[in-house]
């Protein structure tokens, strides 16, 4: 099922929002303006957005350390995200979470997670909750190829399958667990194969094709809503940047990807691909996309302004949000 022009434009808009936000974050980090470290989602936008476009606001997602894009894909707010990255009181988590722990429960975004594979069981719990309460909500667990080698992945797929829970496991296979290539970390080509070991469907999609991701996700979501249980989607994608921004400092000159490979990754740009599709199919003219882009850049700039002018958390807040 090809998505409607409205859905295509919605997907493009969310992807562009991620791209411009992340570019700004990369720039701020390079300038030394952000505390901690950040993991950018550039190059993988089609996965999170393709999936979230197939969800309702009351569906759940659980994210990863590379979570900015997932928050935006689910409908998150630039200002509160940027403020969180600056560690400010106005941030999503009042400055207590930071880049790897942004959550927005009001839109079913149950949090990014700094532990590889740590979010997968949480998504199973959210799916269990939907089943228990008798709603037709679904829960999506987003994780990388690295997490597919964690015990939590295997336990969670099996548990969700045994209990037939509405959970969609989405593996963003960008080919690297931090700096180690996937082929050195596993002896199979396709993580989707692992689904069969747990008695659930496993499909592979081109993770640079947002519409293909959307279609695969929509099918899995419909199936889960019908009570037919979980599915695993493996989206083959590319991390255009490094594992973390500023990684050159601790790589100390060592290379873990060849320049050819990096170039190939740059060429498979999911955003440019969808933009070309929109123009070619005359869903919108190039001028419209440019206007949209300018508007988003303005919003990002405003978010940086909002974050900078926001106060630091008060020391009194240190003991707030502890025990209920």
């Amino acid at each position: 099922m090809t998505p409607s022009p409205e859905v295509v434009m919605d997907i493009y808009t969310r992807m562009l929002r991620i791209r411009r936000f992340e570019e700004q974050v990369g720039k701020l980090f390079a300038e030394g303006q952000l505390p901690g470290f950040v993991h950018l989602y550039i190059g993988e936008e089609a996965v999170g957005v393709g999936v979230c476009a197939a969800l309702r606001d009351d569906d759940y997602i659980v994210s990863t350390h590379r979570g900015h894009g997932h928050v935006i894909a689910k409908g998150g707010d630039f200002n509160r995200m940027m403020a969180e990255l600056f560690g400010k009181a106005t941030g999503y988590c009042k400055g207590k979470g930071g880049s790897m722990h942004i959550a927005d429960f009001s839109i079913g975004m149950l949090g990014a997670c700094g532990i590889v594979g740590g979010g997968i069981p949480v998504a199973v719990g959210a799916g269990f909750s939907a089943y228990y309460r008798g709603t037709d909500q679904v829960a999506v667990s987003l994780f990388g190829d690295g997490a597919a080698n964690e015990g939590s992945f295997h336990e969670s797929l099996n548990l969700a399958s045994a209990l037939k829970l509405p959970v969609i496991f989405v593996c963003e296979n960008n080919g690297y667990g931090e700096f180690t290539p996937a082929e050195r970390a596993m002896n199979i080509q396709d993580i989707a194969e692992r689904a069969h070991g747990y008695g659930i469907p496993g499909v592979i999609v081109d993770g640079t094709d947002a519409l293909a991701v959307y279609e695969a996700a929509a099918a899995a979501v419909e199936r889960a809503r019908r009570g037919e249980g979980p599915a695993l989607i493996e989206a083959k994608t590319h991390r255009r940047g490094g594992h973390a921004e500023g990684e050159a400092a601790f790589l100390a000159g060592q290379q873990y990807r060849s320049p050819e490979e990096e170039r190939a990754a740059q060429e498979k740009d999911p955003l440019a691909r969808l933009g070309a599709f929109i123009i070619e199919r005359e869903i919108a003219p190039a001028s419209h996309l440019e206007t949209l882009d300018a508007k988003i850049v303005e919003q990002v700039t405003a978010a940086v302004e909002f974050a900078r002018s926001s106060p630091d958390p008060s020391l009194e807040s240190l003991y707030e949000d502890t025990w209920v």
Partner: peptide, 8 residues
């Protein structure tokens, strides 16, 4: 709960 600023 703490990490997410009391959202849950």
């Amino acid at each position: 709960r703490y990490m997410f600023g009391g959202q849950t």
